[in-house]
C-alpha cells in the first residue's frame, strides 16, 4: 500500500513541479526552455509507449512524426501562413496519413523485420528532407513566426508556450490513461500477451494494431507541431534514426508498462543530458554505457523503482 502511494506522490509532485516551475524560475528562461523541450518529448514518448509498451510493436521510426509535425509548421511559415487553425489540423492529418501508410506496410512484417522497416521508412523521410532544396535541405527552415491562434493564445510568449505544452501533456496523459483502460486498450494489450489467442477470440488484431499505430503517429505529430514552434526551426536531423532511438530509450528508461512512465523517462533523459554535457564535452562516453547498464540491469525503468517490480505487465 505504501509503495502504491509512493507512485502517486512522485507523479503528483512532478506534475505540480512542472506547473509551478515558470513561477519559481521566473526569468530563468534557460530552464523553462529545457523543461518545455522535455514536456514535448514526453508527449512523443507517451505516444510511442502506446505501440511499444502496450502493443509490443518496436517502431524504430517514431521520429518521423515529430519531423512531419515540425515540417508542417515550417513549410506553412515558409509560405507565410501562420494560422494555427490551418497548420495544426493539416499537420495532424498528414501524420495520420503517413502513419496509416507506414503502418500498413510495416505491420505485414514481424520481429526484427518490423524494426528494420520502420527504421528504413523513416530514413526515407529523412533523406527526402535532406534532398529538397526548396525547404532548406540539410539546413532546414527557420520558423520566423510561431503558430497564431487568432489572438486567443500567444505562443510567442515563452511562458504561454510552456503552459500550452503543459496542458497538452496533461491532456495526452489523461487520454492515454483512458485509451489503455478502454476495450480498445485491452485488445492491444491482449495481443501483446498472446496474439494467437486474441485472434481465436475473433478480434481483428491487425486492424486494432494499425489503429494504435495511427493514433501514436498523430499524437507524435502533435509533439512535432509543438517542437517546431518551440525551437523556431526545423531540419531533417529531427527525423534521423538516432532520434527514434532516443525516443525508445526514453520509454524504456521511464518504464514501458505504465502510462506515466515515459514522462519520467523523457524528463530524466533531458536532465541527464544537460547534467552530463555540463560535466564534460565527452558526455556520450558516459551516456552510452549508462544506456547499456539500464538495459541490462534496470529493465523496468524508473516506474519499477516506484513499486511493482519487473517489467510492465509481464
Amino acid at each position: 500500500m505504501m509503495r502504491f502511494n509512493l507512485r502517486i506522490v512522485c507523479t503528483a509532485s512532478l506534475v505540480l513541479a512542472l506547473a509551478l516551475f515558470p513561477v519559481i524560475l521566473e526569468g530563468q528562461s534557460f530552464y523553462i526552455g529545457v523543461l518545455s523541450r522535455a514536456m514535448i518529448l514526453s508527449i512523443a514518448a507517451l505516444s510511442l509507449n502506446l505501440i511499444l509498451g502496450y502493443g509490443n510493436m518496436i517502431s524504430f521510426g517514431h521520429a518521423a512524426y515529430i519531423g512531419i509535425g515540425a515540417y508542417t509548421v515550417g513549410i506553412f511559415a515558409y509560405y507565410e501562413i501562420y494560422d494555427g487553425f490551418i497548420q495544426w489540423p493539416v499537420g495532424l492529418a498528414v501524420s495520420a496519413a503517413v502513419a496509416l501508410i507506414f503502418g500498413a506496410i510495416s505491420l505485414r512484417t514481424k520481429g526484427v523485420y518490423f524494426i528494420m522497416i520502420t527504421l528504413a521508412l523513416t530514413q526515407m523521410l529523412y533523406f527526402l528532407g535532406v534532398s529538397v532544396d526548396e525547404y532548406g535541405a540539410d539546413d532546414g527552415l527557420v520558423i520566423d513566426i510561431r503558430s497564431e491562434f487568432g489572438g486567443y493564445v500567444d505562443l510567442e510568449n515563452r511562458v504561454t508556450l510552456y503552459y500550452t505544452i503543459f496542458v497538452i501533456l496533461l491532456a495526452t496523459i489523461a487520454g492515454m490513461h483512458r485509451l489503455i483502460n478502454s476495450r480498445f486498450g485491452m485488445v492491444i494489450r491482449g495481443s501483446r500477451s498472446n496474439e494467437a489467442r486474441m485472434r481465436a477470440l475473433g478480434y481483428p488484431v491487425d486492424r486494432y494494431k494499425l489503429t494504435a499505430f495511427v493514433i501514436a503517429g498523430v499524437i507524435c505529430g502533435l509533439a512535432g507541431l509543438l517542437l517546431g514552434n518551440y525551437t523556431n526551426f526545423v531540419n531533417p536531423d529531427m527525423m534521423h534514426w538516432t532520434r527514434s532511438g532516443e525516443l525508445i530509450f526514453m520509454v524504456v528508461l521511464g518504464g514501458m508498462g505504465s502510462v506515466f512512465g515515459p514522462v519520467f523517462g523523457a524528463i530524466a533523459f533531458l536532465l541527464l543530458e544537460e547534467f552530463l554535457s555540463d560535466l564534460t564535452v565527452h558526455w556520450q562516453i558516459i551516456f552510452g554505457p549508462f544506456l547499456i547498464l539500464v538495459v541490462l540491469f534496470a529493465r523496468g525503468g524508473i516506474d519499477s523503482l516506484l513499486g511493482r517490480g519487473g517489467r510492465g505487465h509481464d
Partner: peptide
C-alpha cells in the same frame, strides 16, 4: 534478451564508440 534490449544496448555502444574515437 529480446530485440528491443539488443537494439537499445547496441545503440548505447554506438554512442560510446563515437565518443571514444572523438577522444
Amino acid at each position: 534478451r529480446d530485440h528491443l534490449d539488443q537494439v537499445l544496448a547496441t545503440f548505447g555502444l554506438i554512442l560510446f564508440f563515437n565518443e571514444l574515437t572523438r577522444i
